[in-house]
């Protein structure tokens, strides 16, 4: 394998700003960031509620969620595929092989991560804050906004973990998106395609670009939370 060719391919992709390539990067970011945003809207409050609630079967729920963090993307993809297929229960929506379907699949992959990590973070914070919050009258649901806000830097890490899972996976988006050129082709499905075409330098070049993007987003998030933490202690 010629490593010079790989870096050349990656460099050409990044510098060339080929519209088709930019569309792929744009779609990848759009799908994954939307999925993470939706997963955050669902997962943060649910995770916090799970941290504070005590009910029979809570341990079972927690174990299940932790296990779902390892849900194979292909399985999530297959479930969404069967739901959204024209012959499936949600077929009339006509969402299969669209970016929306890819977002749905990634939300399913990311939500368990967000819930499970949020529960852990909020539970630890609650153990520390409990006496004071209860003293000022914040119990149950009313404690959640405070805990989510004060845990925001740790929670950002949970969202980054979700972002990592979503941006790196190929199994789910390939099945529900169909890897349609110019419409549902993402970085990872393009890598799969180029690999199958035997264009390994291009595939790896795309991989390098994906890594660079992920690195940039992590660096931005890390820097932001560092600066934020300095002002919030």
């Amino acid at each position: 394998m010629d490593f010079g060719a790989i870096f050349q391919a990656a460099f050409a992709l990044m510098v060339g700003l080929d519209p088709a390539f930019l569309a792929i990067v744009g779609l990848s970011l759009r799908v994954t960031l939307t999925a993470v945003l939706i997963a955050a809207l669902i997962g943060l409050p649910l995770g916090a509620a799970l941290a504070l609630a005590r009910f029979p079967g809570r341990a079972v729920v927690i174990v299940c969620l932790n296990a779902l963090m390892g849900l194979p993307p292909v399985v999530a993809g297959l479930v969404v595929f069967l739901l959204l297929s024209r012959s499936g229960p949600l077929g009339p929506l006509g969402l299969l092989f669209t970016p929306t379907a890819m977002i749905v699949a990634q939300v399913i992959l990311v939500v368990p991560i967000v819930i499970a990590l949020t529960r852990q973070i909020v539970e630890d914070l609650w153990a520390e804050y409990r006496d004071h919050l209860r003293s000022v009258g914040l119990e149950g649901l009313r404690a959640i906004p405070t805990l989510l806000w004060d845990g925001r830097f740790a929670l950002a890490t949970a969202l980054l973990a979700g972002f990592g899972r979503a941006s790196a996976e190929v199994g789910a988006v390939l099945i529900v998106g169909g890897n349609i050129a110019g419409y549902t082709r993402t970085m990872t499905t393009a890598i799969t395609l180029e690999t199958s075409k035997g264009d390994l330098p291009l595939a790896l070049g795309l991989g390098l670009v994906l890594i660079a993007l992920t690195l940039a987003i992590n660096a931005i998030a890390f820097g932001a939370s560092r600066i934020g933490a300095r002002y919030a202690g």
Binding site: Y129, H132, V136, T146, D150, Y231, A232, G233
Partner: peptide, 16 residues
């Protein structure tokens, strides 16, 4: 409540 409490180990929120 018109009574308040201060704890042995001060519980400080991660705020100013």
């Amino acid at each position: 409540k018109r009574h308040a409490m201060v704890f042995q180990k001060p519980i400080m929120l991660r705020r100013s």
